[in-house]
Every structure is written in structure tokens, then in C-alpha cells.
């Protein structure tokens, strides 16, 4: 059985000028594999990720024909059940640790609150687990990082903390929403390899949301290409560079190549898409 099954997912925002559909009918299924979702800004890839967690803020509305996680209906599940699922079995890493970590709480408190509140662990046990999680994301001085506030960390460290926080409950599914877009290129590689190792070791399902085609091609097993709230192409990651769909081809053509001609890059041709 598949880990996650999504059929005809729609995310709609009621605005004063009428309904805006951010996601207009997306279907996919996911096993214990890495699924990449690529697309431009506004293509609905982030909203797809958040809809799976049922974390679309009002006035956004989630609709689907079916949405199941591990055989459970997560479209109609009561909020209490969703909370249990979120904390424990589905995690999400967001784009910029500058905003996704609470600025006025120490890293230690943010890492341990789930363990203490939900699992009822004592202070020392929770701290030990958190420190182990920080070591797992290759932070060398975990004890001091525990006492630090997010603004005292670099972007790369912040993102490792975020990953550690999401992996503490050992989820079955991790949604990584542009986890490296806010980081320097060198740090990107480090964070990706950490993420890669952890997902591989624990056999998690991964939804990797990105606008970086090459990255997704290298990092994932399968890729969904989204455009204007729809999936325009689903393809094995290894074959992404040979994609047929005109939109995907258009995106690929816009990538600069080392050693390629130095002229202006082609612009995405939106006619006929």
C-alpha cells in the first residue's frame, strides 16, 4: 500500500474578487521514495505540500476526491487526529530557518517541547534526545546550540536545527519545501547530503519541493512538474532532462550551461502551454 495517496486535490482561496484556485486538481501517490515537485513561483507546489498537512490558513480551503496517509483518511480526519499525525508521522522543513524558527525561544526549548509535551519525557531525557538529533545533523557543539537563539545561528545551522527538529519523532513522511533555497551554494550541498543520508537510512518518504530542476533530477526518484496549479508532467527523475512536455522543455531551456553560449538566456514561452 502506498504511504500517501492524493486524488484530485484542490486548494481554493475565496477573495473579494472571487475564487482563486492555487491547486486545481493534483493527483499523485507516494511510497517510501523521493518525490520531487518542481515549478515556477505560484505554480501551487508549496500549497500542495501544506494541503497534505492540512495547514492551509483561512480563507484557503482544501478539497479533494480522496487523500489518505497510510490508509487513513486525512481529508476528513478531525483536527485532533491531524495534530497527532503531524507531530509524529509527517514532518515539514521550510525554506528559511530565519522565519521558521521561533525567534524568542532557545533552540533547546523548540527541540524538546514535542518530546516533553507529547511524549511526557523528563527534562534530561528530552535534552539527551535533542542533542542526539543535533549530532545526527552533524552539529559539532550540540550543547551550546541548545542554549542558542535562532538569530545566533547561521542559515546552514538553522536549517540543520530545523531538520533535526522534524526528525526527532522519526516520521514516515518528510515534506521539504525549498529546504536549501535560502542557503549559500556550499552550505546547500552540505544540508542536502545530510537530508539525503537521513532519509535513506530511515527509509522515509520524501516530498522535495523545489524550483531547481537539476537538483531535483539528482536528488529524487520521480518528479512532478507543476504549472498553474496542475501537474503537467510526471517523469522518472533520471529522465527529466529528456522530458517531452513543452512546459518542462521550456523550463529546461532556460537553464544556463557552463561553457554554453554567453548570450541572453531563452525566456519561457508561455504561448501554447
Amino acid at each position: 500500500m502506498n504511504l500517501l495517496e492524493v486524488k484530485n486535490l484542490r486548494v481554493t482561496f475565496a477573495t473579494e474578487t472571487g475564487q482563486v484556485q492555487a491547486v486545481r486538481g493534483v493527483s499523485f501517490s507516494l511510497g517510501h521514495e523521493r518525490l520531487g515537485i518542481v515549478g515556477e513561483s505560484g505554480s501551487g507546489k508549496t500549497m500542495t505540500g501544506r494541503a497534505v498537512l492540512r495547514l492551509v490558513r483561512p480563507p484557503g480551503r482544501i478539497e479533494a476526491d480522496a487523500m489518505t496517509f497510510d490508509g487513513r483518511d486525512i481529508l476528513h480526519a478531525p483536527e485532533r487526529e491531524m495534530r497527532a499525525l503531524r507531530g509524529k508521522r509527517i514532518g515539514m522543513v521550510m525554506q528559511d530557518p530565519k522565519y521558521s524558527l521561533n525567534p524568542v525561544m532557545t533552540v533547546g526549548r523548540q527541540l524538546t517541547e514535542g518530546l516533553r509535551l507529547r511524549d511526557g519525557l523528563g527534562r534530561a531525557d528530552a535534552a539527551a534526545k535533542a542533542i542526539a538529533a543535533l549530532e545526527a545533523v552533524q552539529i559539532r557543539d550540540p550543547r551550546r546550540v541548545m542554549d542558542a537563539y535562532p538569530h545566533e545561528l547561521s542559515g546552514g545551522m538553522g536549517q540543520r536545527v530545523m531538520i533535526a527538529m522534524m526528525l526527532i519523532p522519526e516520521p514516515d513522511l518528510l515534506i521539504a519545501d525549498e529546504p536549501t533555497s535560502a542557503l549559500d551554494v556550499t552550505v546547500q550541498a552540505e544540508v542536502l547530503s545530510i537530508l539525503d543520508g537521513l532519509v535513506r537510512d530511515r527509509g522515509m518518504g520524501l516530498i522535495f519541493i523545489s524550483h531547481d530542476l537539476r537538483l531535483v533530477a539528482r536528488f529524487c526518484d520521480r518528479v512532478l512538474v507543476m504549472h498553474k496549479g496542475l501537474v503537467v508532467e510526471e517523469i522518472e527523475a533520471a529522465h527529466l532532462l529528456e522530458a517531452r512536455h513543452p512546459y518542462t522543455r521550456g523550463l529546461l531551456n532556460c537553464l544556463p550551461r557552463i561553457g554554453g553560449p554567453r548570450g541572453p538566456l531563452p525566456v519561457l514561452d508561455r504561448a501554447g502551454i
Binding site: Y99, L101, E113
Partner: peptide
């Protein structure tokens, strides 16, 4: 509306804690 609130919800924190601990600590400033 901040992203760290989403983080707290992703962690499965109950709503009272999201509001009165995570958000309130920032509102207090």
C-alpha cells in the same frame, strides 16, 4: 501569519500552545 507558527503546528502543538506560548512570546515584545 509568521512561518514559525506553521512550524509549531507541523510539530503537532495544540492550538492553545501555538497562540499563548509561541505567538504570545513574540507579541509580548
Amino acid at each position: 501569519g509568521q512561518e514559525y507558527i506553521t512550524t509549531a503546528r507541523v510539530k503537532g502543538m495544540p492550538e492553545w500552545r501555538v497562540i499563548w506560548v509561541h505567538a504570545m512570546k513574540n507579541v509580548a515584545v
